[in-house]
Design a binder for these strands. Structure first.
Lengths: 241, 241
DNA sequence: GCCTAAACTGTGGTCAGACCACAGGAGGAT
DNA sequence: ATCCTCCTGTGGTCTGACCACAGTTTAGGC
């Protein structure tokens, strides 16, 4: 028996489940095209609006990409791009006060520490990381600098090989991007702050490459909490070890 | 300059941004009602279909709840319920092979360890946890047992006070619920497995209450990896310390 | 005057049809 | 062989209509 507050049969949910089932069956996978909206509607005996609402959900969740026109690239094709959906979800929840910013930062802290700990423990390819590190020496504009900073942290997450962690970290970062950017305005000596962040980045990467897991985790923790403290955002000092 | 592949002005996105802006402005918050679909359409000068597609997105992301009828409880009401949206997102991504199950389990491992570590480090209320613990002594059916197990882990996450972590853990768990359930069929001696899980749960809670953070983390790691190993799912032995 | 039941209003949910812009393929003209 | 035009099918959007539903209002009976 389902929960008493179960939804009373919404058509678009049926469409969603149908597509999800196709996904689970393996009938369609990344790269494949979904039937056209009109075909799907006729196949399921529902209106096109219901199909569209279901496809809209799949689109914002990063499961499909829709294109107009004709040919093999047109229509709804399955892409499994988790990043965008998570970012949108977290950003909206933060906007609606469902997620306190402190909790977002705290979660990022947990994931980042786990990432560098794992990287330090095993072999990993840091060429992409070093390229971003070098690029950050050039730029001085806060917005560009922070964009590269996000890329750097994402590169570390991807190097750890866990797609879920990488997607979540991207989403967490994106969801508070505007706050991070606004915080940069409150920094008096941005040049000094940038230099400090650069140095901390290189310290972290060095600790990873030398296999000092505990040190890398501590450096990351200080790196993140330090920036948020300096910019007047939440201290976010919880759920850390 | 935005990315070259920027979406060419989709109407429903404009509606979404409009609502998001209202959320950010604080013009509407949890508990408030959104304008009716027809009013919103007229206000923005768009069709009702576009409004509906935007509201559909907000609904699946757990931001609003829609009800038919009239009165104060009808219409689209802002609720900031992050759990459902995250669960749906992760479940769909797993279905579309965007997220390997091993990565989901690995991420859960990271978060659960962080949760118990934080709980052991500070004071926390474990009455809700103990209630679930006692309830698990009664039930024997695998499905019911695993449902209570999920509740237990969720209660721990909520006790840590981080809403984002709690929501993510719920989502991660839900997204692989079917696999976990299927795995229970492969267990020869379910009674023995249940007893083992019960004992492990109590060990974990005891370690938390006694402030043994390192031990609690280790117990949680063994608890989760042990079950997945016994049920033939991914060993998921990555990004742990 | 009070209570009950019917009618009303406004809501989301769904469908049908229409039109548009767009991208590719088919076909003929050069 | 090349280029150009027309055609087809796609998603994107709008409009109008109808339904089920839940409150609110009103009319009716007592």
């Amino acid at each position: 028996m389902p929960a008493p507050g179960d939804a009373p049969a919404r058509t678009w949910r049926a469409v969603l489940q149908h597509v999800e089932q196709r996904l689970l069956d393996g009938a369609v996978g990344p790269g494949d095209r979904l039937p056209s909206e009109r075909d799907l509607a006729a196949e399921l005996g529902v209106g096109r609006s219901s199909v569209r609402e279901a496809l809209r959900v799949l689109e914002v969740m990063g499961l499909i990409r829709t294109s107009t026109g004709s040919g093999p690239q047109a229509g709804a094709i399955v892409i499994a791009a988790p990043g965008g959906g998570l970012s949108a979800l977290l950003r909206l929840q933060v906007a609606a006060h469902g997620f306190p910013i402190a909790d977002v930062v705290g979660t990022r802290l947990i994931l980042e520490q786990a990432v560098v700990t794992a990287l330090a423990a095993g072999e990993c390819d840091t060429t992409a990381v070093h390229r971003i590190l070098d690029a950050m020496d050039e730029h001085l504009d806060p917005a560009d600098f922070l964009a590269l900073d996000a890329q750097l942290h994402l590169a570390l997450a991807e190097a750890s090989g866990n797609a879920v962690v990488a997607a979540m970290m991207t989403g967490l970062r994106d969801s508070i991007e505007s706050y991070v950017l606004a915080g940069s305005d409150r920094v008096q000596d941005w040049q000094g702050m940038a230099d400090r962040l650069r140095a901390e980045h290189r310290d972290i990467v060095r600790a990873i490459e030398e296999g000092r897991a505990e040190a890398a985790a501590a450096l990351v923790r200080d790196h993140i909490t330090g920036y948020y403290a300096a910019t007047g955002l939440a201290d976010a000092d919880q759920t850390t070890h």
